[in-house]
């Protein structure tokens, strides 16, 4: 086959496939996080050994969200996160949306997948397709990753995370997972079970965020781009920035990748990996944009010291 013809026909593929890839391209880079399954397993074992219904209910959300955050900051997780408990079964496997946590612009969902016959789920199993919510919540990006359950081989977890430009609290979300397969590097995927698994739920968690005006805080990116930051929405689990880019360079993709850091009072600096987008205004002389990111661990307001954007330090004085 002529390569030119292949290239030409790739240009005529379905627009939803192009849009899906385009959305990812405009996201900031998301590095895979370190697996937290060890901590998650420890939390689950602790709950199982306690086996006290009343106490389990008070800590239930942080246990359900343990594949996401481990045992970190369970008080915050329990106060913001909410259990979901929506399940759907197909072909001997049950997918359950266990719990959600988030803020106005970021959220994460922990799903569990269990084998109904109690047998181990094959290693490297994953869904062949992931069709996230059709609901509109602005631009931004999301990801789906797997976390094994070291204690129970008949269960594995999936974590879906989104950071977007529009407020999501109260919105109804849906997700459709396609067939369950084992990825074969040099051949066809090996089918495990036929989907789809479809779930719908509402982001009903509490709005724990605060809004701070940044008064057009001027910031210069290392590449020379001038930003003015207008507003910060910040919560114990994530943040959202609204900004203007001055004189955006034609043909350049402006990005805040590796430029936003949350500094804690103990000196720890969390390099955030979020999603940003912008669009041109005023005939291209400026661009209006936003950036949203979720932290790797929950952070109490009183532990936050400063936000560092492109090296510019903005002190944070927040209390619960």
């Amino acid at each position: 086959m002529n390569t030119d013809k292949l290239i030409h026909n790739l240009g005529n593929i379905d627009e939803d496939l192009i849009a899906e890839a385009a959305e990812l391209r405009t996201r900031q880079k998301r590095r895979p996080r370190l697996p937290r399954w060890a901590a998650a397993a420890a939390c689950l074992v602790l709950v199982m050994s306690l086996a006290v219904t009343a106490e389990a209910s008070t800590g239930a959300v942080s246990n359900l969200l343990a594949p996401l955050f481990g045992c970190a900051q369970t008080e915050i997780v329990d106060s913001i996160g909410i259990p979901v408990g929506a399940s759907v079964s197909a072909d001997g496997y049950t997918l359950t949306a266990e719990a959600i946590i988030g803020d106005r612009y970021n959220f994460a969902v922990v799903y569990s997948l269990t084998r109904d016959d109690g047998q181990p789920i094959a290693e490297n199993a994953h869904f062949a397709t992931w069709d996230p919510s059709k609901s509109r919540h602005g631009s931004g990006g999301g990801s789906l990753r797997t976390v094994p359950d070291e204690e129970d081989p008949s269960r594995m977890y999936f974590i879906e995370e989104w950071s977007v430009s529009g407020s999501v609290i109260g919105r109804q979300m849906s997700v459709t997972m396609g067939d369950l397969v084992i990825y074969a590097p040099d051949g066809e995927d090996i089918p495990l079970a036929s989907g789809p698994w479809e779930l719908t739920y509402t982001l009903r968690y509490e709005d724990s965020g605060k809004t701070l005006p940044l008064w057009n805080l001027p910031v210069t990116h290392p590449d020379g781009t001038q930003y003015k930051f207008k507003k910060l929405d910040i919560s114990p689990v994530g943040l959202h920035l609204d900004f203007t880019i001055l004189d955006p360079v034609w043909g350049t993709v402006h990005t805040l990748h590796e430029q936003v850091i949350l500094r804690l009072k103990d000196g720890t600096e969390l390099l955030l990996e979020g999603n940003g987008s912008y669009h041109h205004k005023g005939g291209g002389k400026t661009a209006k944009g936003s950036y949203s990111a979720m932290y790797g661990i929950p952070v109490p307001f009183e532990d936050m010291e400063a936000l560092i954007i492109c090296g510019t330090v903005y002190p944070l004085e927040l209390t619960e």
Partner: peptide, 16 residues
């Protein structure tokens, strides 16, 4: 038929 990440990588390289 591709996993989403694989599809997006492929299109990022050969469509965009």
């Amino acid at each position: 038929t591709l996993p989403k990440d694989t599809r997006n990588l492929f299109l990022g390289r050969y469509f965009f």
